[in-house]
């Protein structure tokens, strides 16, 4: 067997990791604040369409990234309205919003470009820039979450909302902020896919990457750097399985397709004991009435 761990494999791993990593970081911020985000996939696909349309309009993929982040933020706002303010069930609201975004993006795309015409290909950003941006965002998130009062308050809002409230912070505001930031990051992830490696938009182009991101948050035990490492590991598994499949033809190829998930499972099992979720994750905050 040829060496499969080449520079090419590693760069493939990076390309596969960046969109997922950004979305996972979004999910991480959100869950730290105590909000379970099952709308990640919906935020990603909205960011992907936003990024595509804006790049197509302006010719600048950087504008596309901003637009993608904005589209994601909008979805985040809707989610926070539903789960933070109305205090709807976080699982159903998140799932419902994902369904809504997937359908709405497909509908809009088709309404804009119609049947039988070729939607234009858009300008793309080089992978180097996207990787640097991703690392910078992780560094920023790590710094804010662990080194600032805002970050501590945010984390506390996910662990002990009652105490945070007693200290004078508005739990619901912290959570709304976290949900919008989560939308920005996941939207950026979707836009990074479309404005980076692909340069086109398709129905359901994010293809379940938001769900993988959700798994990575737990895998990373809610820590930013581990989250980035997890995304890289996942990307590496995918890049490797594609290369191994061609060489080990005696093994059923389906095993290779399942490999990234099996490895994530194995890692989860090995690391499981140490995990510690935000204690109030998924609980709507309600102030005791007097």
């Amino acid at each position: 067997m040829d060496a499969v761990l080449t520079v090419a494999t590693l760069s493939a791993a990076l390309r596969l990791a960046v969109p997922v990593a950004l979305a996972a970081l979004g999910g991480l911020v959100n869950e730290r604040a105590g909000v379970l985000n099952l709308a990640l996939e919906g935020m990603m696909i909205s960011g992907a369409l936003g990024g595509y349309l804006a790049t197509n309009e302006t010719g600048s993929p950087w504008v596309g990234l901003v637009a993608g982040a904005a589209a994601g933020a909008l979805v985040g706002l809707v989610l926070s309205l539903a789960v933070v303010h109305v205090k709807a069930n976080q699982m159903v609201a998140g799932l419902g919003i994902t369904l809504l975004c997937t359908a709405a993006t497909t509908y809009l795309f088709r309404t804009i470009f119609g049947i039988g015409t070729v939607p234009p290909r858009i300008e793309r950003i080089g992978m180097d820039a996207l990787v640097l941006l991703t690392i910078a965002l992780f560094a920023l998130a790590w710094f804010v979450l662990t080194r600032t009062t805002l970050g501590l308050a945010l984390t506390a809002a996910g662990d002990a909302p009652v105490a945070v409230d007693a200290l004078g912070y508005r739990v619901d505001r912290l959570r709304t902020g976290a949900t919008v930031v989560s939308g920005v990051l996941a939207g950026l992830g979707g836009a990074a896919l479309v404005c980076g490696p692909l340069g086109l938009f398709l129905e359901n182009v994010t293809h379940g990457r938001g769900w993988v991101a959700l798994a990575l948050v737990v895998f990373a035990r809610w820590r930013p750097w581990a989250c980035l490492a997890g995304a890289l590991l996942f990307g590496l598994c995918d890049a490797l399985q594609l290369r191994l499949q061609g060489q080990a033809t005696a093994v059923p190829y389906e095993l290779f397709l399942a490999l990234p998930y099996l490895i994530t499972l194995a890692a989860l099992v090995v690391r499981g004991r140490a995990s510690r979720a935000p204690l109030a994750l998924g609980e709507p905050f309600q102030r005791a009435t007097t």
């Binding site: 959700l214 798994a215 994530t264 499972l265 989860l268 499981g272 004991r273 995990s275």
Partner: peptide, 11 residues
Amino acid sequence: FGASVVISTLL
């Protein structure tokens, strides 16, 4: 092993 049920069922 203490693995999260949500994530393991999903994977």
